[in-house]
């Protein structure tokens, strides 16, 4: 059995949260003047900036522009060289395998909500920069990118929300004990860096949770439309996957409520008025 217990006997985690508790989320929208839309998001100590440019005419004639009937979504995920907390520095902010793959997955998450058919021959650029990394970076990036798209006034189907759920891995022989009574899944939600490093299994989910009261939520079995799912860490017994998924989806729904409140607050304070 690898790693220590993620949850203590009192039901608390390393940073004092309960198993299904999110970190504090703080949001500012419209942080840049130059971009069409931008957002700054903090999830605990994970801090992310996102900027959206477009839809605009593709520039740089090298490729001859975009002649297709649908728009291009161009994503760049980068981590600041100083983003690690442990004093180490990254060699370069982008271009390595990990950030390239994350850029690709970010694009998936965005393509799921933006209707690219509406933007023939044009391009939307999404730039995400992780300023401080403390676990669940990709999820914070997806959330920030969604907010930036909303700020840019680009039509989207729903909030694309990311959340992780982590579970201490055990051998397949071990009995699946704590199938949660409440039905809200097992494992811990929104893992921070320390919890991610214990060697436990982390499931990352990007979902479209749907507005509260929408048809997605009505059936608890299949709530939320999962767009991107990714597992890291040790192997997981299949029987435990469902519980983990439920926990992550619940985290997505909770996050969506918080993000929605932040957007509403932004709207009330930034409405152009002319007395």
């Amino acid at each position: 059995m690898s790693g220590q217990d993620l949850v203590s006997d009192q039901g608390l985690r390393v940073d004092g949260r309960r198993a299904n508790e999110l970190r504090q989320i703080r949001v500012r929208m419209g942080v840049f003047g130059q971009s069409d839309g931008s957002a700054y998001l903090e999830q605990g100590n994970t801090k992310v900036l996102a900027a959206v440019y477009g839809p605009h005419q593709p520039r740089g004639g090298g490729r001859g522009g975009n002649r297709s009937g649908t728009g291009i979504i161009n994503c760049q995920y980068s981590m600041a060289v100083f983003s690690f907390s442990a004093g180490e520095r990254k060699k370069r902010p982008r271009g390595d395998r990990k950030t390239q793959e994350t850029s690709l997955q970010l694009r998936r998450a965005i393509e799921a909500i933006v209707q690219v058919e509406l933007y023939p021959r044009s391009q939307i650029d999404v730039f995400v920069e992780v300023l401080q990394s403390d676990g669940s970076d990709y999820c914070a990036a997806v959330n920030a990118a969604t907010l930036a798209l909303i700020d840019a006034g680009i039509p989207i189907k729903d909030y694309s929300v990311g959340c992780t759920a982590t579970i201490a891995s055990m051998g397949a022989s071990e009995e699946v004990d704590s199938k949660d009574e409440t039905g809200s899944g097992t494992g811990i939600v929104d893992a921070n860096h320390m919890e991610e490093c214990t060697g436990a299994t982390t499931l990352t989910v990007v979902a479209l949770p749907g507005a509260p009261g929408s048809n997605y939520e009505s059936d608890t079995d299949n709530s939320g439309l999962v767009v991107v799912a990714q597992g890291t860490g040790a192997r997981l017994h299949l029987s435990r996957l469902e519980g983990l998924r439920q926990r992550a989806l619940q985290g997505c729904r909770d996050t969506r409520v918080i993000l929605d409140q932040a957007v509403r607050f932004h709207l009330t304070t930034h409405d152009p008025h002319f007395i």
Binding site: I156, L208, A211, S214, L267, T268, T269
Partner: peptide
Amino acid sequence: NLSNGDHGMPRYYTPGEE
């Protein structure tokens, strides 16, 4: 911001809302 959100609040809609 000049407004603190208490001027005759219109109803705001957010993406995905019915």
